[in-house]
Amino acid sequence: MVNKPIIMGVLNVTPDSFSDGGLFIKSSSAIAQAKIMVEEGAGIIDIGGESTRPGAPEVSVENELKRVMPVIEALSGNINVPISIDTSKPEVMQKAFEAGASIINDVNALRAEGAVEMAVSLRADVCLMHMQGTPRTMQNNPSYENVVSDIKVFFQERIDECQRAGMELRAITLDPGFGFGKNLGHNIALLKNLSEFHEFGVSILAGLSRKSMIGSLLGNKDVDSRMIGSVTAALIAVENGADIIRVHDVAETKDALTVWQQIKNFRG
C-alpha cells in the first residue's frame, strides 16, 4: 500500500465502539479528529461506521452510510493521506470510493456476497482480516488447533479467491485480527509469530490499540488506561514484522516509532 511502517489512525463514527464510541459521532468532530491525526503522523485515516466490538449489533447499510459519508466527503482532497473505509458491505464500499476512499479495511475479509467483486471493480487496496465467528459470537470460547497455522490456511483461501476474481497480490494486506475470536494466549502467539505471515508476500497490519489483551496484560486496566501498553505492543508488532499499525493514539505511537527507528538505524 504505502511506505512502511505506517500508522493508520482509527476514526470510529459510531455511538458504541469499545474505545472512542460516541466521541466522533458528529461529522464536525470526526473531521477535526482526522485532521489532528494526520498532523500527528497518521499515514492512513480508517473511517468506520459500524462497531465490531464483541457483542456489537448489526448496522443497516443506510445508517452506516449516514455516519461515514459526510466525513469522507469532507476529508477527500483536504487531507494528504489515503482514506480507508472500515466496512464489510459492498454498497458502503462503492459509495465510500465514489466519495474519495481508496482502501477497504474489512474485518470479514471480503466474505460478504459481492464484496470481492466490488473490491476488484473499484481497483481497491484491501486489508483482509481474520475473524473466528462474528462480532456477536467471536469471543464465545474461541479455539484453534494452532492459531498461527489455522489463520495461514484462512489467508491462503482468501488470497486465492481474490486473485481468481482478478485482484493483484500487491493490492492485499493481511490482518490476523487481534481480539477477533481469540483469547489472550492466541493473541500473544500471533504477536510473537507475526513475521510468519510475510510468507504470503504482502503487507501485514496489526491492530492492537487499547484492546482487551492490553488491559489483561496490565492487570485488567480499563480502556482509558491502556495507551502506554498499546504503544508498547505496537512497537513489538513492528519489530516482529508489522508494516502498518492501526492505532487510536497517533502522536504517542509516532514518537515511539521515531525513537525506535533512530536507534535501530544508528551507526556509531
Rank of each mutant, 00 (worst) to 15 (best):
G166F: 03
G166R: 02
G166E: 04
G166K: 03
M167D: 09
E168V: 00
E168K: 05
L169T: 08
L169F: 06
R170C: 12
R170Y: 14
R170Q: 14
A171Q: 13
A171V: 00
A171D: 13
I172Y: 09
I172N: 11
T173Y: 14
T173Q: 15
D175T: 08
D175C: 12
G177M: 05
F178L: 11
G179S: 05
G181C: 02
K182A: 06
N183A: 01
N183M: 07
L184S: 10
L184C: 05
H186D: 12
H186Y: 02
N187M: 05
N187C: 15
I188C: 05
A189N: 14
L190M: 14
L191I: 02
L191Y: 06
L191R: 09
K192P: 03
N193D: 05
N193E: 11
N193T: 08
L194W: 10
L194F: 11
L194C: 11
L194R: 06
L194I: 09
S195R: 14
E196S: 15
E196W: 05
E196F: 12
F197K: 07
H198T: 06
H198A: 03
H198I: 04
F200L: 05
G201A: 10
I204W: 13
L205E: 10
L205V: 12
A206W: 07
A206F: 08
L208G: 03
S209I: 06
S209L: 09
R210T: 14
R210K: 14
K211M: 06
S212N: 11
S212D: 07
S212C: 00
S212G: 00
S212P: 01
S212A: 13
M213H: 08
I214T: 10
I214S: 11
S216E: 15
L217N: 03
L217E: 01
L218I: 04
L218N: 00
L218A: 04
G219Q: 06
G219L: 06
G219I: 03
N220T: 00
N220S: 01
N220K: 00
